[in-house]
């Protein structure tokens, strides 16, 4: 297995082989490589600082003499730390409302409308009766896109208008769901910038109107350093309970996962791994840790 970080750490740790505990200088050299690897993976630089400090405490004095391969031992410590930071095994959805409500929010093009279809498919396979609700009245043909997704997965869709205010649509969808025998409502919303106060207010109003059991923040795995500001702004401006990390079928290292989890404390619940409605799975912190480290 090609593993750039391990080989760099081997160089940094070469001197300690057979010498006992890690000394401060070796730990420094090791942490430097780890810092660069995390930055290259797009983990936010402030988040990297925190992780590196925690690792320093853990590594100083660590017994590596008996380890056959000190680099592997350090890599293991690092990936354990990342796994911990990424949260425990994936938290499911807590859907108790009648109907239960899921709302999706995020930046433009992050994968919300696709995720709406995927969630509907997943829930349908578990015996639920989902209804997709078209509250993106902004992007050209967004409503049509959601309708097509609903048709693809065979679920109800509520899409009474293609322009105007999405808040009433959201509000009325609850009664519509009951009328049509649907027990879970999935609200698609327009993409919006976290710095756009008006549209952030609109998302908050939609949330207020439907009181979701789960508000999920959808974020593109390819996002860079701004992930922290974006996530924090959505948490403060709209609020959310969990995260969907999208486009993980790409080759981005996905450091955003760490950034988002660190600054919001909200669990990453799903990984979106393709354009088809079945390309969706529970999020696995252990796999993500390896991926961020390039392993």
């Amino acid at each position: 297995m090609f593993d750039a970080l391990s080989s760099k750490l081997e160089i940094a740790l070469d001197r300690v082989r057979g010498r006992g505990r890690l000394d401060a200088a070796t730990v420094d050299a090791t942490l430097k490589e780890i810092r660069l690897a995390l930055l290259e993976a797009d983990v936010n630089f402030k988040v990297v600082k925190g992780i590196v400090e925690r690792l320093r405490e853990r590594l100083v004095g660590e017994e590596v003499a008996k380890a056959l391969n000190p680099a592997q031992q350090v890599v293991k410590a690092v990936s354990q730390e990342l796994e911990r930071a990424l949260g425990g095994e994936s938290a499911g959805l807590a859907l108790t409302g009648k109907p239960a409500v899921i709302m999706l929010a995020g930046l433009q093009g992050s994968g919300k409308t696709t995720a709406a279809g995927k969630l509907a498919k997943l829930l349908k396979s578990k015996g639920r009766h989902p209804m997709l609700v078209a509250c993106d009245l902004q992007r050209p043909a967004a409503v049509q896109q959601l309708k097509v997704n609903a048709e693809r997965v065979g679920v109800h869709v509520y899409a009474p208008v293609t322009a105007g205010d999405p808040v009433p649509v959201a509000r009325e969808s609850i009664a519509k769901a009951r009328e049509s025998g649907c027990d879970v409502v999935i609200v698609d919303t327009a993409g919006r910038l976290h710095v756009d106060e008006e549209l952030m207010g609109q998302a908050a109003a939609i949330r207020e109107a439907v009181q979701p059991d789960e508000t999920l923040f959808v974020i593109d795995a390819m996002i860079g350093q701004e992930a922290v500001n974006v996530a924090r702004a959505f948490l403060d401006g709209v609020g959310f309970d969990g995260v969907i990390l999208s486009k993980l079928d790409g080759d981005a290292r996905g450091g955003a996962a760490l950034s988002v989890r660190e600054v919001t404390g909200k669990p990453i619940k799903f990984a979106s791994i393709g354009e088809k409605m079945e390309d969706f799975e529970a999020f696995h912190p252990d796999r993500m840790a390896s991926r961020i480290l390039g392993m």
Partner: peptide, 11 residues
Amino acid sequence: LDATTGQNGIS
């Protein structure tokens, strides 16, 4: 290219 993209933009 999306301006929010990180290092993956190079690939």
